[in-house]
Design a protein around this nucleic acid. Structure first.
Lengths: 123, 123
DNA sequence: TGTTTATTTGTGTCATCATGCAACTATTAT
DNA sequence: ATAATAGTTGCATGATGACACAAATAAACA
């Protein structure tokens, strides 16, 4: 039996963070902060390449830090909706929410691009 | 006369940060960290909406923090290639590098999306 | 020259964060 | 029930970061 334990839904709905800058499509700073740590980025990349849900202890084997730290990093990514966590017995399997992630960043790119003023002929 | 003062070129070429996770298309943590602060995000959004290069003191008027702090935030965004800085006399005009920004995030989205494993029929 | 204005940089402070270790919870097995 | 395993959380610490204020730099002007 699978149990989803994503509390990110609550936080997203609180809306204290998303859209803080007033431009739709630009994610909130807390979401983007989740990518600001090199260890967290590597953990994300590891899961992206794994293509399969991985448990915490397996992930932690790839990094020279304590399992508890990995667990915390995973929780941060999960809380922002970047990862999905599924508990199966003792283990918790983390996987990437590909569509969510790509849609957010594609929306970010579009938000910026759509506001690009037409180029003047200079130079 | 315009003088570009973007030192980000050096940092980008150092390569200590970009591609740190090994997956091409995923930006480095320092680049993403530039977006992790709410003030910095608002400054960026302000410039995006301005659509025209703005000088530091003009930008600072929109935020309840010291000009020096705004200057530092702008420098961080400039060093990551997010903003362009052009000195004109005493003033320094900052503007958004729209194409650069959107291409980075679109590339990020594509890097994630392209690694999304095919969906299984579950549930 | 000296003066004013725009921006950057030095410095100290307070808050946040990544980390390790220990304790705790939850689940499985004996 | 007891033990073992997986994961999370409490707590202390060192590093980093945002901020204010002051000093330094740079450019225009008297």
């Amino acid at each position: 039996m699978m149990t989803q334990i994503n509390k990110h839904l609550k936080k997203e709905q609180k809306g204290e963070d998303r859209g803080c800058c007033g431009i739709p499509g630009i994610p909130g700073p807390r979401f983007l902060k989740a990518f600001s740590d090199s260890t967290r980025l590597r953990i994300l990349a590891h899961l992206v390449e794994a293509k399969v849900p991985q448990m915490v202890s397996e992930i932690a084997k790839n990094f020279p830090i304590d399992v508890s730290v990995v667990s915390r990093h995973l929780a941060i990514l999960r809380d922002e909706g970047i990862l999905l966590a599924e508990k199966q017995g003792k283990e918790v399997y983390y996987s990437v929410r590909y569509e969510f992630l790509s849609s957010i960043f594609r929306g970010f790119a579009s938000a910026i691009e759509s506001r690009c003023p037409p180029k003047e002929k200079n130079g």
